[in-house]
Structures are given as structure tokens and as C-alpha cells.
């Protein structure tokens, strides 16, 4: 009590302890996971031609909004990125930047054969694989996948978030820490790298 430090303590430690007490309780964990899973807003980032099927997913026939997924305008307010098909070298930088602009519990769905391993363009000189750019949660085969498939992928991602407590762990730990993208950002956006 002699020193002023005793009152305040280390602010970081205190904050972390408070967060652990708040979020460590099981119900709050569940609330975070539940809320995140039913509010997966995909950001508007159209990378390739699967975007037509992405658009069809949010059209009246399938209506992705019924699962709580509302395509939204800017990256800052969203938490889901759907890679719609091929990612070219020029687009890869935009994908990574968008991913980095999104706030923390965030997820990615790679849609289409091209997003898996190149698909029809496997030997093209101008593509990168999305998993080299950002960490992917759900892979979705098909060329292009039907809209029902994408809706299914969204539901699968919701289940994954709830059953594996992805979102709450992320909020508590600060970073999910499983997969790291392969290519460093300087190579994607610097125009200089010839390796990719």
C-alpha cells in the first residue's frame, strides 16, 4: 500500500483477469458463440465468377438472410469473408487487406474448385490459392457450387463456431492461432515478388 502501483496494479493483468472472469463463465461463452454464429455477415468482396452464385444465394430462392447472414458493405462491420472462386495475383492483395481490416472473430469460406486448388485454372500463371492468402474455415467444392451448397456451408460454419467454441475462444485468447496464411503480405502487395 505504500506505492501507488498497488492500487492500480498492472493494468493489462487486471484487464485480462476481468475478461477471464467475465468470459470464463460458461453461459457468456455460449452467448458469444451463439451471437457470432447467427450473425455471420459476409463482406462484399467479389473475387471471381462464383459471385453469381453468391448473389443467387442471397436471392429469394435460397435466401441466405434467413440464417442471419446479411451481405454487408465494408470490412469493418463484418466477420465473414467468402472467397468466390479464383484469386488472381492482383486480387490477392485486396483479399489480404480486407481480411486484415476485419475485426477479430472472423471467418473465411473458400467457395468453388478454384479456391481449393486452382480448379480449371490450375496451371494459370496469374492465380494464387486462397489458403496461401488467408486462413480458411470451410472449403466448398463445385464449379460453381450451387447456392444451396453455399447456404449449407454457412450453416456448417455456424455449427462449427458453436460446437468448437471458436468465437469465444478467440475473444478470450485474443487470437485463434490455428492456421497462418503462407505468403507474407509484402509479397502479395508489394508487386515485387515473383515467387507467387
Amino acid at each position: 500500500m505504500q506505492e501507488g502501483k498497488a492500487y492500480v496494479g498492472n493494468l493489462d493483468v487486471t484487464a485480462k483477469r476481468a475478461r477471464d472472469i467475465l468470459l470464463g463463465k460458461v453461459p457468456l461463452d455460449k452467448v458469444v458463440d451463439w451471437a457470432t454464429s447467427f450473425s455471420l455477415w459476409p463482406v462484399h468482396l467479389t473475387t471471381s465468377c462464383c459471385s453469381t452464385e453468391f448473389a443467387a444465394t442471397f436471392s429469394p430462392r435460397v435466401d441466405g438472410e434467413q440464417f442471419g447472414a446479411l451481405p454487408w458493405v465494408g470490412p469493418r462491420q463484418t466477420n465473414l469473408i467468402i472467397i468466390e472462386g479464383t484469386v488472381t495475383k492482383k486480387m490477392a492483395c485486396a483479399v489480404r487487406l480486407t481480411w486484415e481490416q476485419m475485426p477479430a472473430p472472423k471467418f473465411a469460406i473458400a467457395m468453388g474448385a478454384c479456391a481449393l486448388d486452382g480448379g480449371l485454372f490450375y496451371n494459370s500463371y496469374n492465380i494464387v490459392k486462397p489458403w496461401q492468402v488467408i486462413p480458411i474455415d470451410i472449403y466448398l467444392p463445385g464449379c460453381p457450387p450451387r447456392p444451396e451448397t453455399l447456404a449449407r456451408a454457412i450453416v456448417t460454419l455456424q455449427r462449427k463456431i458453436r460446437s468448437k467454441k471458436v468465437a469465444s475462444t478467440w475473444v478470450r485468447e485474443g487470437w485463434r492461432g490455428d492456421i497462418e496464411p503462407v505468403i507474407p503480405k509484402e509479397d502479395l502487395c508489394g508487386w515485387a515478388a515473383k515467387s507467387i
Binding site: V32, A35, S39, Q66, G68, N79
Partner: peptide
């Protein structure tokens, strides 16, 4: 189309808005 629905089918998806709000709160 249906609009927000599956978070709470009985309330017609009203809880989706709650989910959005909570998600923003924890993000």
C-alpha cells in the same frame, strides 16, 4: 423471401437482431 429466421423461428427471427447486437458488442 423469408428474411431473418433461424435464430428463433417462433419469434420470426427477432433474435437475429439480438445476435447482431451481441456480436458487435464482443467484436
Amino acid at each position: 423471401r423469408i428474411g431473418p429466421y433461424w435464430a428463433s423461428p417462433r419469434l420470426g427471427g427477432l433474435m437475429h437482431l439480438m445476435a447482431d447486437m451481441l456480436r458487435y458488442a464482443f467484436q
